[in-house]
Design a protein around this nucleic acid. Structure first.
Lengths: 196, 196
DNA sequence: CCTACCGATCGGTAGG
DNA sequence: CCTACCGATCGGTAGG
């Protein structure tokens, strides 16, 4: 009802969220102000509140958007009839892809989630814990089946997750190698480090 | 001259810096206020300014303290007559040790450096780039000598650095494995992933 | 979507 | 090291 869509089919609210993700990534959630956001959107600060409830709503929209995608992907991987190593490779590739293509959103959900307000904060942390547990279970399974070295699965998951979120620095870097090459290198080192 | 030392030989200024690191880690630099810092130190906010110049001075003291230690360590490693793989292992062990024993300080210098003010910001970024370059050169050398898989050295360094800074989550976690065990697991996966 | 404005909080200073 | 206080900026609201 009267929600105006632009030619690329996104509402004004979508634009605000997208710009918020960029701003939160650049400055950090606390340091980013609604006045700055208004400026990049092209309206007065007060006008933002016709589309969103609060600054903090912006953050939880961003974070849960990412979390939902991660969970759906994990459902899919668990359902597959493949080896643990293949599952891990698929997860790692998905995560790298997300980092490369939805950079700002993923970055914010990775680094700024601690500014979430309750009950979103607790909910997000719970989802995160659950996600890591499912990932660790796959690693554990691979160890049992002797596809993977005998290591602490929690540590292995932490390493993979953080190595990937480090793509941030790659993104900033001048002499970037391309996305595909990056992905293959990461797979070699990370998955290669697990293989027995 | 009147600088009072406590029994463990640290000045009041040292205490302020230490508490600042804890607070900046917990809340983030921007979200942490000088009034909160004063409270944990046990004085009024205005009194902090008899020991330090500004909030931003606290951040650069923390960040450069860490950066200096990293640089000294790199000097030492480069001077050794060991294989590239041994050098990398030494660097990784040093970084993990720093993360485990100087957690707050290292965390802040890793995640909050972007709030540094000029000229400190540029200086810090330059040191960081130089440090990574030296690390990558060691990896490169290992590849040439066929100790290490043929991978992009920049990516390899990024992975190691970020995997280690991810120890943050391990620190938070309930069912921690101990520091030594963590270190051995990380060496297995990270250095193992490089080995030819 | 804008103008006008609010109460709260911030980093920091003056003066003792 | 404290009391008292400053100018700036914040997220958000009222009213049109």
């Amino acid at each position: 009802m009267g929600r105006i869509k632009t030619e690329n089919n996104s509402t004004r609210k979508d634009v605000i969220i997208k710009k918020a993700a960029e701003l939160f990534k650049e400055k950090g959630f606390k340091a980013a102000s609604m006045r700055e956001l208004a400026e990049v959107v092209g309206v007065e600060a007060a006008s933002l509140y016709n589309h969103i409830r609060s600054k903090s709503e912006l953050l939880h929209l961003i974070c849960f958007n990412v979390a939902n995608r991660y969970n759906l992907m994990m459902d899919e991987v668990e359902a597959e009839k493949t080896t643990s190593l293949q599952k891990i490779e698929k997860i790692v590739r998905f995560l790298i892809g997300g980092m490369v293509h939805n950079f700002e959103e993923v970055y914010v959900s990775d680094r700024e989630w601690k500014y979430l307000s309750e009950p979103y904060l607790s909910n997000f942390q719970a989802q995160r814990r659950a996600y890591r547990k499912r990932f660790a279970a796959i690693v554990e399974d691979g160890i049992k089946k002797k596809e993977i070295k005998k290591i602490d699965s929690t540590t292995a998951v932490l390493i993979m997750l953080h190595a990937i979120s480090g793509i941030e620095s790659w993104h900033r870097s001048k002499q970037k190698i391309n996305g595909k090459e990056l992905e293959e290198n990461m797979i070699t080192i990370l998955v290669g480090g697990l293989k027995k």
